[in-house]
């Protein structure tokens, strides 16, 4: 019944630092159904971008497996991986630094088509570039312009067109609208949603912006210091957040509505160090419900209702 396109199993990514091992991602597992969107949220340093890069092997994961359409892609050669990147694309946060300033819009979009040998023949390629520009809402008159002549929204459209050029099945979006103004952000979000419907794309959407992730995702993973603390469908997570961190995170969002003022759960302190973390709940230091057991072991991710998993010792006390 379910058609899983991507599965991540117990992924770990440690970085060496002079003070010890940085546990950027520490045993994360999830899977995504074809045609759906998985949102990964968390604050700076929670490991959300590292997960993304590890899935595409832009950085090699320290441990764990990634299955794309049933195939373990952590095992395959670099060469094979390069071929597979046709199916797996990425759109980065900053459209200013992810485009070559010396390539025009059409050259930037043409490049992946040529490199991957998607279409042959100059005319056919040009037609495809024009078609892609149309798909992402870039005016034909911009064909020969350079990125510096365009605003952030248009640049992000180029990045999306370039990702689509190789006809991918899956696109990893790492904060694709964070650098954009709200009125432009809404244009890009709508565009990405339309493209998903038209082309049956699967997205991972990495962001720190909770209102964007709710609008955009089917399922959401909440991360804290390299670990998943809660995962649920978007609706369920916002209606019924269970983990104390998720609750605090949701209550911290400033809502542009005067009637919706609510009780705020203020977290004390800040994110602790991910270097050689102890075997305890990583949120224990900031948690308002902290108990002795939280310092004794790290809680496992446990299913509390269908599709809703939480990693918190509180669950056992109830």
């Amino acid at each position: 019944m379910t058609d899983t396109i991507l599965e991540v199993k117990d992924m770990k990514k440690y970085f060496n630092s002079p003070k010890g091992k940085v546990h950027a991602v520490d045993g994360v597992s999830f899977s995504i159904e074809r045609g759906s969107t998985l949102g990964i949220v968390g604050e700076s340093g929670c490991g959300k971008s590292t997960i993304g890069k590890s899935i595409l092997r832009l950085t090699e994961p320290s441990d764990g497996q990634v299955f794309f359409e049933g195939k373990d892609i952590t095992e395959i050669s670099k060469r094979e991986m390069r071929r597979l990147r046709k199916d797996m694309q990425i759109v980065f946060q900053d459209p200013y630094s992810s485009l070559n300033p010396r390539k025009t819009v059409s050259q930037a979009i043409r490049e992946p088509i040529v490199i991957n040998n998607i279409i042959k023949g100059k005319d056919a390629i040009n037609d495809r570039v024009v078609e892609l520009m149309e798909m992402v809402g870039l005016d034909q008159r911009l064909y020969n312009t350079y990125p510096h002549e365009l605003d952030g929204g248009r640049r992000q459209r180029i990045c999306i067109a370039r990702a689509l050029a190789v006809e991918p099945k899956f696109i990893l979006c790492d904060e694709p609208v964070s650098a954009l103004d709200v009125s432009i952000q809404a244009q890009i979000l709508n565009l990405m949603k339309d493209l998903q419907e038209q082309l049956g794309l699967t997205y991972i959407f990495i962001t720190h912006d909770l209102s964007v992730v709710k609008f955009f995702s089917d399922r959401i993973i909440v991360m804290y210091l390299g670990k998943v603390v809660e995962t649920a469908s978007a609706d369920d997570l916002f209606k019924n957040p269970v983990h104390p961190y998720t609750q605090a995170l949701l209550s911290s969002i400033p809502v542009p509505d005067l009637e919706a003022r609510k009780e705020r759960i203020m977290l004390s302190g800040e994110i602790s160090s991910p270097i050689n973390p102890k075997n305890e709940c990583r949120f224990a230091k900031r948690c308002r419900f902290v108990m002795d057991v939280c310092h004794e072991s790290a809680p496992d991710l446990t299913e509390i209702s269908e599709g809703h998993c939480v990693a918190c010792h509180l669950l056992k006390t109830k």
Partner: peptide, 17 residues
């Protein structure tokens, strides 16, 4: 501006940019 922001208290299907 208001129409462009996804509102967490509202289940909008599309934004109106």
């Amino acid at each position: 501006l208001f129409n462009s922001i996804p509102d967490i208290n509202d289940d909008k299907i599309r934004l109106v940019p």
